[in-house]
Design a protein around this nucleic acid. Structure first.
Length: 299
DNA sequence: AATATTTGCAACCGCACCACC
DNA sequence: AGGTGGTGCGGTTGCAAATAT
């Protein structure tokens, strides 16, 4: 029994279709996706229905909400740990899907690849001369080799009301899907002893101390250009993207408020890009500064 | 203001795994 | 044991919006 091709709908979902899908889930739960089509409710494949539910219709999704700095850091850290296990990484991020994480990471890869490409000799040919440049698969492997500095391991929560949620060490090993909260805090397994759970319980997320990036040491041998850039950079952003430089100095200081989860989550609206974010931060790096950073061993 | 380029998102595809018969 | 259908996952692509020139 083959369904005629023309009966299969593809492409963007209409609101009526969403409604049908939601009704199905209400009745039967998020399963039996194929029966939606076999019952003639929708002319979509079961896979398509499942995907739509998982990525858009599921409750508590952060749709249209840009990744916060905290989330970015979680992704960067977990990607270093797990590799491209987007579904696994997504379980640590409340309201994020594997697709979200994948898209986020992909964007970063491409941006960095472009930066590296631009600064590695071919200053004349930026991707602007090639509209399809981001489709080139070669770019994919580049970011993998970008050093993920050893992120200090500690426990944090990025839930909007983080101050009310204890972030005990017993939860720190669990992805959010396994936590006993209805709206579980996002927690990342980290291991820096100096950030114990008492700290996170006692103060809101914005006041959790972060390691200060130490002054560059002469023997790090950054290029003059890199050093100049580094000197301009706000330490907190360097940390937010890469984590602290390992082993150099142990001084801790109160960082600036990292993010405002409410105002940074502009539902449905594209975020103005000229704000200083880790995105723009990456754009400021010369490629050669990465040459001086020790990559992590692959997990 | 118009055009070109870049970006982010949504959705599709192919493959792998699992349960059931 | 092998076939089949359902589901999940990672990679890829198309497109509209945002941004740059």
């Amino acid at each position: 029994m083959e369904v005629k091709r023309e009966e299969l709908r593809k492409g963007p979902w209409k609101s009526e279709e969403d409604e049908v899908l939601l009704n199905h889930v209400k009745k039967y739960g998020p399963r039996d996706w194929s029966s939606i089509r076999s019952k003639g409710l929708l002319h979509r494949t079961g896979k398509s229905c499942r995907l739509r539910w998982v990525n858009k219709l599921r409750p508590n999704l952060k749709n249209g909400c840009k990744f916060t700095v905290e989330e970015e850091r979680v992704v960067i850290d977990l990607q270093a740990q797990f590799g491209n296990k987007w579904a696994k990484i997504a379980t640590y991020l409340a309201g994020r899907t594997d697709n979200d994480v994948k898209n986020f990471w992909s964007s970063r890869q491409k941006r960095l690849a472009r930066i590296l490409q631009n600064s590695s000799g071919s200053s004349s040919s930026s991707s602007s001369s090639n509209p399809k440049a981001r489709r080139v698969k070669k770019e994919v492997s580049v970011f993998r080799d970008v050093p993920a500095l050893q992120v200090p391991v500690f426990c944090y929560s990025m839930e909007e009301n983080a101050s009310a949620k204890p972030c005990s060490s017993s939860y720190s090993q669990l992805p959010v899907t396994e936590m006993p909260f209805s709206a579980p805090p996002v927690v990342v397994k980290q291991e820096l002893p100096s950030f114990d759970s008492d700290i996170t319980q006692a103060m809101p997320i914005s006041q959790i101390p972060f390691p200060q990036i130490p002054q560059p040491q002469p023997d790090l041998a950054f290029s003059p250009e890199s050093q100049e850039l580094l000197s301009r950079l706000d330490d907190s952003y360097l940390f937010n993207v890469f984590g602290p430089v390992p082993e150099i100095g142990s001084q801790l200081s109160l960082g600036p408020p990292l993010f405002d989860p409410v105002s940074s989550c502009m539902n449905g609206a594209r975020v103005v890009r000229n704000a200083v974010t880790p995105d723009t931060f990456f754009d400021d790096f010369p490629a050669d500064m990465f040459d001086n950073i020790e990559p992590l061993p692959t997990p």
